[in-house]
């Protein structure tokens, strides 16, 4: 464990808490893409199957359970409890266009052609693009509430911090994993445009509004 990874994990946890609190306090999931949340739930359930086979640390097990549970809880809140507030008219991204290519790519490019390894690889590929329906929703409505922006910033920072973690591990532990690194790079790049708007607008107290 190094500081970049710890900060990355905490940032990820913060993003999830912000989102759940926003939905719970406002009793509404307006402006949030249910499609992205479904993708994240698929990402965590397929990646953390090793919970049943490998024990790494109490921290690792605890975080994995939290990520699976909170992603399922978010989907439940959006599609069941606060279904009436869900913005389904704008949330029209076709997630099969992300799921299927991620799965095919995982079958083609992986470290080992075994079920658990392919599912792990699939989850890494899918995570890198899972935010696209959310970014699509924001671009369709042309704006995002501040709280949604904070959520996106925390979520984007998480993989960005992991990039520094991988650079650190490359030098300190002589370890690297190209699948995770390339996917993490793609994931972080997808947030760049949003990061720019967040820093130039949201941090100055303005609402995130896209140019017409």
């Amino acid at each position: 464990m190094n500081i970049f990874r710890l900060l990355g994990d905490l940032s990820h946890l913060l993003a999830i808490i912000i989102l759940l609190l926003k939905i719970w306090k406002t009793r509404s999931c307006a402006g949030i893409s249910g499609k992205s949340q479904i993708l994240f739930a698929i990402v965590y359930t397929t990646r953390y199957l090793d919970l049943f086979t490998t024990f790494i640390s109490a921290y690792n097990t605890f975080m994995k359970i939290i990520f699976i549970a909170t992603s399922l809880a978010t989907v439940f809140l959006m599609y069941v409890k606060f279904k009436a507030t869900y913005d389904h008219n704008h949330d029209t991204f076709r997630i099969e266009f992300l799921i299927l290519p991620a799965f095919v790519l995982a079958l083609l490019i992986n470290h080992e052609l075994s079920p658990v390894e392919v599912l792990w690889t699939f989850s890494i590929y899918l995570e890198s693009v899972a935010i696209l329906p959310q970014l699509f929703l924001v671009s369709k409505t042309g704006e995002a509430e501040s709280i949604t922006s904070h959520y996106l910033f925390a979520l984007g920072s998480y993989r960005g911090l992991y990039l520094f973690n991988w650079i650190y591990r490359y030098y300190a532990e002589d370890h690297y994993d190209l699948i995770a690194i390339v996917a993490g790079l793609v994931q972080t790049v997808l947030y760049c445009d949003f990061f720019y708007l967040y820093i130039t607008k949201v941090l100055k107290g303005k609402k995130l509004q896209l140019p017409a």
């Binding site: 090793d50 790494i56 640390s57 994995k64 532990e173 370890h175 995770a180």
Partner: peptide, 10 residues
């Protein structure tokens, strides 16, 4: 071994 090293990440 990649299995023990990378799988410790989240």
């Amino acid at each position: 071994n990649r299995y023990t090293i990378v799988k410790d990440e989240l």
